[in-house]
Every structure is written in C-alpha cells, then in structure tokens.
Design a protein around this nucleic acid. Structure first.
Length: 1032
RNA sequence: GGGCGAUUAGCUCAGUUGGUUAGAGCGCCACGUUGACAUCGUGGAGGUCAGAGAUUCGAGUUCUCUAUCGCCCACCA
C-alpha cells in the first residue's frame, strides 16, 4: 500500500487486533533469564476474578504497561507477570448470589465440592475475560507466565509459608469476637465492614433488682439499639466512681469551651448545662448503684430469667443514657473487653445463620429481626419497657453480602504480627522500599505500627484450605501419647509435619499439626490418628501477600526468582496499601529475607461524574472494552495517562451510548440504577447493565463511555495524519548522513525541541509523572511538530535544494516521536512504524541505522544534548511570532483565506539574515508575500502594524486592497487600551521604591525593558490610529 | 474524633524553585474544506485562582484560620 492510499483515519478496530497478533507471533512481551542484560520486573496487582475489569483497572494496567514498555525499550530484560486473584469471599459471594437468584439454591444444597467446582467455572470464565481485556488494552504482559493465586505453584507457596509461620509459633488459634456475616456465614475482616447510617430506635429496658434493700431502686434502667442481645447479657455495669467521672467530663468540656470559637461555644455551653442538670438529678442514684455493685448485688435478667451481677466498670459512662449499660460479651466488641476484664461468662446466643440458638430459651429459632420484635413485646407485657427513642444508627454492614454484621464469638486462626510488622516498617523507614507519593508512607507505618494480629481464617469454601489437622479435648496423657505417635511417622522425619500441643482454658489438650507439602499419604496417616482437617480457608490476602515471589517459583529456588526478584516497581491504588502492599513486604522479608519491590507507586482513582468511585454495584463501572470499541485502545490509554495526575482523582463524567442511534446520554445517579433507559434522541429503550439473565436481554446494552476520551482519540488521529503526510513525502528518500551545520533554522529548532522533549518525557516516566509526559508529548506533537515543522516543511519538500535534508529530518523526528509515544499509545505507533519501515528503513541523522521491526523493541531515545540550543529556539520564536501576527491581522480584517497579503517586517540586519531563508515557509503559512525585510522595512500607505513584544520586530501588513477601516480601528483601539493599562501597571511598580531597591536587579531591568517596549508600541499604535482616522 | 487530599474559565484539569498580561482540552462565537488531518485549521469571548488574615518589593504558588467536598482510620450501650 502506498502512503497516499492510507485511510485518513487510523482504523483502530482492525489494526489493533492485527498488531496484537504480530506481537504475539514474535512474542515481543516474553522475558527470559538473560544475564547479559539487567532485569526489570513488575507483578500485576492480580485482578479479582469476581467480575470484569473497569476503568480503575484500565488506569492501573495502563500505567504499568507504560513503565514496562519504556524499560523494555531501554534495554532491560523486562518481565511483566500477569495473573488473577481468587478473591475468596468476594468470588464465593457472587457465585452464591447467582445460585440463589437463578436456581434458588444455597451452598449447603450443593455441598462444598460442587460449589467449589462452580466457582472454578466462574473463575475460568472471568479469567478469560479479564486477560482478554488486558490484551486488548495492549498490556505487554508475559502471556506465557500467567498465574492464578490458587494454582499449584501459588498453593505450594501458601503451604510453605503457613508451615514456616506455624513452626515459628506465629500461628495460633483463639476465640475472638469476629464480624459475622450471617448471610455468607463467615467472619469478615474489619476492612470488609462498612458502616451504613440507618434510622433506628433506642429502647429503654428495666431489669429488676433481686432482693432490693431499703433505699435501693426496684429496677435498673439500661438502653440498647439491639434489644435481642439482652438474651446474652451477663452483667449490667455502672461506673465505679460516677462523681469523679462526671468531673472529668466537665473539666474536658470547660477546656474545650476556652479554645472554642463563638459558634461552637453555645453548643458546648449547653452540653455543660445538661451535664450539671444530670449531676443534680442522677448522681445520688448512680452512686448508690456503684455501692450496690461493690457489694456484689444481683439483677434478674427478664425473659430468660437469669441472675446477672451489677458490676462496676469504667466502660459505663455516667454522662450517657441512664448511666448504666448492659454487658453482652459475646456480641459486642466493647462488652467483650469488659467481659475479659471482669471475667464474665460469654454467652453466644446466635447460630451461624443468624437465628437465636438454645441459649435464647423460648426465642430459639427466631431470626434476629423477629426476636427483636418479640423481646420488645414481651418486655412491654412484663411492664419492663421504658421509653423508645428514634435514633440514627451506624449499622455495620458486610461489604460482601450487604447484610448487617453480627459480632460473634468464634474460633479463628491468627498470625502474630509483632516481629513481621516490624520488619515491614523498617524496610520503608530505611527506604529499601520507597513509596510514591511519599504522603502514603504515614498510613502504611501507622497501620503496621499497631501490630495487630492478623486473623487469617475464613469460614468459606473457596480458597486455600488451612493445612492444619487437629483434635481437641485430650487428657494430658492422651495428648502426649499422640504427639509421640506423630513424631514416629516417617514424614515427620522428612520435615513435612510440624506439631503443636496446647492447653486450653478448661485444662484439656489440643493437638494441631501442620503439613507443608500437599501429600495424600501424609494426610491420611495424620487422619488415621484421629486428627481432623480444619474446614476453614485462608484470608485471600494471604496468597496475595506472596505474589511477587510465588509467581516466580518460590519455594523452589528457580533461576527466575534469582534473576527477577526483587521486582522493580509495584503500581497500585491507595486502598490496598495496608491490606496488600504491607503484607507483601513482610512476607517477602519473611520468606526470602528480601524486599519484594524497590518502589511503590500509588496512582489516583477514577471517579464518575458525581465524584463517586466506580463499582459494579453502583452501576457506574465502565468496561474499558466499551471505550476501546468506540475510541480505540490508544485513546483509552492516552486519555487515562493524560488525566492521571499525582494529587487529583480523575473525575470522569460518564455517558451511555444509545445502541439504536449512537447518541450519548449523560449518566445520572437516577438512570444508572435503572435497568433500562429510554434514549432522549430516538426514544429507543436500552439496557444499562450487562445481561445477566435471559430476561435482561430484551433490550440491547448501551455502552458506557466517557467523552473525555475524545481528545485522546483526536490526538491519535492527528498523529496518524502527520505520519501520513510524512510518508507521502518520503518518496525518493535516501538514507545518508546529515551534517547538523547544513540544516535550516527550522530543522535545528526541531532537533533542539526533540532533545528537550526526550529528556522531559524520560524523566517524567521515571518519576511516575504520567500526565506530565502525556502533556509534553501532546503539546510537542500537535503544536510544534504538526503546526510548525510539518507546515514549514511543505515548501522545503517542494524545493529540490532542501528536499533530501528535510526528508531525513522529518523521518528522524517522526521516528523519535513514535518511540516516545509508544509506551502510551502502542498501537498507532506500531502501525505507523511499520509503514515508516517500508518508506525509510534506514533512519537517523549523523549515522543512519536500520530500524527494528517493532517500535516495541526499538531503543528508547536518548536526548541529544548537543542539539539543545536556546538561541536557536529564540530565533525560531521570531519566525513563529511573525506568522501569528500576520494571521491575527488577517483574521481581524476578515481577509479571505485565498487572498495573499503583502507584508513588511522591520527588524535588525541580524534577524533579517536568519529570517530570509524562512521566507517560503512564512509566505505559505501566513498566506502573505514578504515585500521587505530588514531595518528599512516600514509601514505601507494603508498599514496594519503589530509590534512583537520583547522582540525588536514590527510586522506591517499592507491593507490597501482589503481595508476595513472600522474593523482595523477597532482592533488598534483595543490594542492601545491594553497597552496603556499595562504601562500604567508597570510604571506604578517601578515607581515603588521598595520594589526597585529590594527586588533582584535582573527582575527590575526586565521590567524597565518591557516598559520601554510598551511605550514604543503605544506611540506607534497611536500614530497608526491617527493615520487611519484621517482616511475615514 | 484523628489523618490525608482537593477547591483555578460553563465542564474536566495543568500551573515546576514566589517574578511580565494565569494556561490546555471540551463546550461557545466568527471565518474557512489550499493535496496530512473537519476526529481539522485560523482568530475570538470567557477567570476578583473557595473566603479571611499573615509573610514579602511582589502570592494561584509560602504560613494560619474558616467554609465546602472527597478518601482513609478509630469510635458511637
């Protein structure tokens, strides 16, 4: 195909698939251990197989690919490790929901094996889709090395790690209050719990005092937002010294009042007033109750008819409610602490499914909701119900199942964090691991600093099953005997088994063993001894924490591990710094005694038009494929890189594209949650969601896109057409050395700019300033390469004198531009590159060389410092400003595009000499005819002048044939007005003694000089105005 | 409650160490299809840089306070 036959638009839809094929055929993305080169590696933050990727992933992976592609071009042996995460609870939750909605089945109907089978199918389906999305985005992962957090290699790493921690006695089992998801029937971590504000009530109850003495109240009043938990109450607490506690609160308030501003003061004052009122009305009674508590007096818990103590504990705040608080240690985190402190019984009243168990007496079998109603009713009937207040309640809700969380006492496995956390803190403190932007260090260090043990067991079926076999309730003797038997097993000698013996609270023994390597024989030997495998699986972050080394083959000591570990950079989003990044650091250090990566870059987040994060559940998630279909993969990538600045999250207003008429409809909170939306333009109904069931497919899906990618798409097109121009003009191109000194001003200017741009872009990428790099390239390519160099080159290419050198320069410039743009826009650059390879296979200035077949594998440009020349750039600016000045006058005079205007340019002899060779370009770009150039060039009879600020140049346009005096007068008067304003401002500034004496001389001189120029301009404008007026 | 970030044109965002007249894209207005590009070109309109105060000869930029928005962490019987 000849250059002239290329379409005037880049056909991304067919071309990008073709290019992916070429990269695949040549395996351009593949990395091997190669000791001749330096390695550079990145592990992908493995996307969850929960669902398809959205634009947040789009950004994350674009940024990684940019770094990877640049490093590859810089000559590193570059590995980008791809893969996906099994995402335990999240994936099981979606599959279970689907099961329930489509087949009305629960996981228990299916059984563990069948459910896990289903989830594997889901995983296969979404893994394929996710990897396909990444490929279409152009991600240059090593597709021969795709991993999954639950594949055999990762599983082996999980077992080895767990075994090691178990051997170090950093794994232990404990009863802990966990966040229980009654729908999924599993504990979820604190991070998976979100508080939702709802309207609720605050119920007041009265518990009778047993055998009240003289002066005792007959009842103690407490209040709760969760009435049903009273079934598990094991005490009521009152503050041991309410007077003192009230004093302290008052003192605090008074202190606050002192510091408060006027507005808050009223509020605080009223708090103090009510506190004092409370002291008056309630203190004697509270003190009496505290006294009763110290005497060990008992209360009768209604409904279940249990005797519970009145205790003294500081948890009871005398300034709140009745001053007394019910204690339910098994179902409330704070009460749990009180329970431990006061050695109270802990009564769990719930079954795992959220119904009341046998401890709840007659309420057994009721759901929490029903039990709540009945408890209130029964208390009312018993005359023990007090006031009911309305109240806003922060309800802890499972992020996974969207159902309320019940605090629940359960057995869980924990990892001790004391030592592990410290190592990960040290790595960041001494900057072996650097986090960018640095403000994220604090969160990382604070979180690790708490050194809270990590609960790692999950009551799920999807995940790495905990490799622990155990048996409980052994006598001292049996326990020791069992241990002896275990130690006699042949596998014990080979180090595959580690045992642990521990005494539990009731003085019976528990034996637990951990098996390192998966091995049926060992497992059955252990099971033959009566031990049973723990049904729980590990927290999904456990396997993710190993990702940088498990993917490289650990625990085997593979050459890849040796060569590619530690990895170079981790690129991720801020919400998993603690959950994932911190844990990778500590696990890497634990397993290999080496950090997992040198640098961490935290990028911004993508928000929708309302400023909310994108998520599938909100319906505002954008599938990168929909953007690619409409705008192309390069536009997607460039658009994201261009918008992703360091401090700002990217707000991306989102539209639906009507599948019937292709019009776009702005997405709103309202229409995004609707399943179908009518098109405003054509009235056609379309669906806003991916069809999940047959019924949903009644209406075609409207693609969710964002017009923010239009700019980027246009840029791709601009580049494509500038390339097309170049290719069309390379006919007869001969590779030959070009001497710098023989080049024209415009050539030298372009090379100088190219040198700066190369430097800026390289530095920007290396410092993760993606938006800076994208902007620099956009501005250079559009405003300098296209608008100036290409335009100037037109007459040059027509002139046999200058054609050859211009071909060399433009081919070289395009070549460099393609390389620089390649990491951001791999497709269009690769496409142009292959055409350029046909037209000019050997390129370069001083010593042309054969270009690589792929841009992707070409060398990264290095800035040629000797080409950088400020003076050339300044001289070129003279030319550029003259063009601008003529165009401005033409436009204000409404001169027809086809009419050529005569001009004169007054300037120094020096400038004239430089500008003379630019004459053809000046004339073609400004549609003018340069009549005179030099110190003598003066105004025409009918003249439109323009003084170029800070340059000693005046441009004159001969308006004899075109004059629109009124328009020209208007232009000049406006100009004069502006000039006068600036003069006034500057005069004022220079009259300021302080400025003149204190500002650096440089700055003052500059001001004086510019004032002088302005005054000259003002005079010449005034003269022109006068002359024009005389002609009216 | 603690921490972090943001607030610049109608919209989405740049603005390096304080220094001429605060920029870009989209949108808007006017003109224009000349052989790279109408996904384009040329020109234009549009901003008291959230508010107040401080430092300075000089503040979008530094400091303090206030307001609004967002995120993270903790807590709320």
């Amino acid at each position: 195909m000849t250059a002239a036959e290329l379409a005037n638009r880049f056909d991304h839809s067919t071309e990008s698939l073709h290019i992916i094929q070429r990269w695949d055929d040549a395996k351009c993305w593949h990395a091997e251990v190669n000791t001749d080169r330096k390695p550079f590696s990145v592990v992908i933050p493995p996307p969850n197989v929960t669902g398809a990727l959205h634009l947040g992933h789009g950004l994350n992976n674009t940024l990684q690919d940019i770094i990877i592609r640049m490093k590859r071009m810089q000559g590193f042996e570059t590995l980008w490790m791809p893969g996906t995460d099994h995402a335990g609870i999240a994936t099981q939750a979606v599959v279970e929901r689907r099961l329930r909605e489509d087949e009305s089945l629960t996981r228990h109907d299916l059984g563990r094996e069948k459910l896990v089978e289903r989830i594997w199918k889901w995983k296969d389906q979404y893994e394929t889709r996710i990897l396909g999305q990444l490929k279409r985005m152009g991600c240059s992962c090593d597709w021969d090395r795709v991993r999954f957090t639950m594949d055999d290699q990762c599983a082996a790493a999980v077992r080895a790690t767990f075994f090691d921690l178990f051997s170090k006695q950093w794994i232990y089992r404990g009863k802990r209050l966990v966040n229980w998801d009654t729908f999924l029937q599993t504990a979820v971590s604190d991070d998976e719990v979100k508080n939702v504000s709802i309207k609720g009530h605050f119920w007041h109850f009265r518990y009778p005092v047993i055998d009240p003495r003289a002066g005792d109240p007959s009842h103690v009043e407490i209040a709760t937002t969760r009435p049903e938990t009273m079934l598990g109450d094991t005490a009521v607490a009152v503050h041991p010294n309410p007077a003192k506690a009230l004093d302290e609160v008052e003192k605090e308030l008074l202190q606050k009042l002192k510091e408060a501003n006027e507005k808050d003061a009223d509020e605080i004052q009223s708090q103090i007033d009510s506190l004092q009122a409370r002291r008056k009305s309630m203190l004697p009674q509270l003190e009496h109750l505290a006294q009763m508590a110290s005497e060990g007096r008992m209360l009768r818990l209604p409904l279940v008819d249990r005797e519970i103590p009145l205790i003294a504990d500081v948890w009871a705040k005398p300034e709140l409610g009745s001053g007394c608080v019910k204690i339910t240690p098994a179902h409330d985190p704070n009460d749990y602490e009180v329970g431990l402190r006061q050695d109270l019984p802990m009564i769990n009243i719930l079954n795992p499914d959220g119904t009341i168990n046998a401890e709840g007496a007659t309420y057994e079998g009721l759901t929490i909701k029903k039990a709540r109603v009945k408890v209130v009713e029964d208390l009312e009937a018993a005359g023990l119900l007090g006031d009911i207040e309305d109240r806003d309640i922060e309800l802890p809700t499972s992020d996974r199942s969207k159902t309320p969380i019940e605090p629940f006492l359960a057995d869980q496995w924990f990892v001790k964090m004391q030592d592990l956390a410290q190592t990960a803190m040290d790595a960041v403190i001494d900057e072996r691991v650097e986090i960018f932007p640095t403000r994220y260090r604090k969160g990382y260090l604070d979180w690790l600093g708490e050194k809270r043990d990590w609960p790692v067991s999950r009551q799920l079926w999807w995940g790495h099953q905990i490799p622990i076999w155990s048996i409980n309730d052994l006598t001292d003797e049996d326990g020791n005997e069992l241990i002896a038997k275990i130690r006699e097993l042949p596998q014990y000698a080979s180090g595959n088994i580690k045992e642990q013996l521990s005494e539990s609270e009731d003085a019976t023994f528990e034996v637990a063993v951990c098996i390192r390597d998966e091995d049926a024989e060992t497992e059955s030997a252990i099971e033959a001894l009566g031990l049973v495998r723990d049904p729980d699986v590990l927290d999904t972050w456990f396997s993710s924490a190993l990702w940088p080394h498990s993917t490289l083959g650990w625990p085997a000591n593979t050459p890849e591990l040796e060569y590619f570990y530690p990895t170079g950079t981790l690129i991720t989003s801020r919400d998993i710094i603690t959950l994932w990044v911190a844990r990778m650091v500590l696990m890497g250090l634990n397993n290999l005694d080496e950090i997992p990566f040198h640098e961490v870059y935290i990028h911004s987040k993508i928000l929708d038009g309302q400023g909310e994060t994108m998520s599938k559940s909100k319906g505002n998630g954008v599938d990168p494929i929909e953007v690619i279909d409409k705008f192309g993969p390069d536009a997607l990538r460039f658009g994201l890189a261009y918008l992703a600045t360091e401090t700002q999250d990217v707000r991306l207003p989102v539209q639906y594209e009507c599948p019937h008429c292709s019009k776009t409809i702005e997405q709103t909170k309202k229409n995004r949650s609707a399943p179908t939306v009518p098109c405003k333009a054509c009235g056609g109904i379309f669906s806003t969601q991916w069809a999940e069931s047959e019924a949903d497919k009644a209406h075609p899906k409207g693609a969710v896109i964002s017009e923010r990618f239009e700019t980027a798409r246009n840029f791709v097109n601009k580049l494509w057409n500038a390339s097309r121009f170049t290719l069309m003009n390379l006919e007869g191109y001969q590779a030959q050395p070009v001497e710098y000194a023989s080049l024209g001003l415009e050539d030298q200017w372009l090379l100088s700019r190219l040198s700066s741009v190369t430097k800026t872009v390289t530095e920007s990428f290396e410092h993760y300033r993606f938006a800076d790099a994208a902007r620099t390239l956009y501005d250079f390519a559009w405003d300098e390469f296209c608008s100036f160099y290409v335009e100037i080159s037109k007459p040059r290419l027509d002139d046999p004198e200058t054609r050859a050198r211009t071909q060399s320069v433009i081919a070289h410039a395009l070549d460099t531009l393609l390389r620089l743009l390649h990491p951001i826009m791999p497709f269009v650059t690769e496409s142009v590159w292959s055409h350029l390879g046909e037209a000019a296979p050997v390129r370069g200035l001083a010593s042309p060389v054969q270009a690589n077949e792929f841009t992707m594998l070409a060398d990264w440009p290095t800035a040629n410092e000797s080409h950088h020349n400020e003076n050339i750039e300044k001289q070129f600016r003279e030319f550029a400003e003259i063009v601008g000045a003529v165009r401005k006058i033409r436009s204000s005079q409404n001169i027809d595009r086809k009419d050529v205007v005569p001009i004169a340019v007054r300037c120094t002899n020096e400038s004239a000499q430089r500008l003379q060779p630019m004459k053809p370009s000046l004339e073609s770009m400004a549609a003018c005819e340069l009549r005179t150039l030099g110190p003598q060039a003066g105004p025409f009879e009918v003249d439109a002048p323009s003084s170029l600020s800070s340059l000693d140049i005046d441009v004159h346009v001969d308006l004899e044939q075109f004059i629109d005096i009124k328009a020209e007068l208007g232009r000049l008067e406006k100009l004069l007005d502006n000039t006068v304003k600036m003069i006034t401002a500057k005069e004022k500034k220079l009259a300021n003694e302080n400025f003149v004496s204190r500002a650096p001389a440089e700055v003052v001189d500059k001001e004086r000089e510019s004032l002088g120029d302005l005054v000259k301009q003002r005079e010449s404008i005034a003269i022109d105005i006068k002359r024009l007026r005389s002609r009216m």
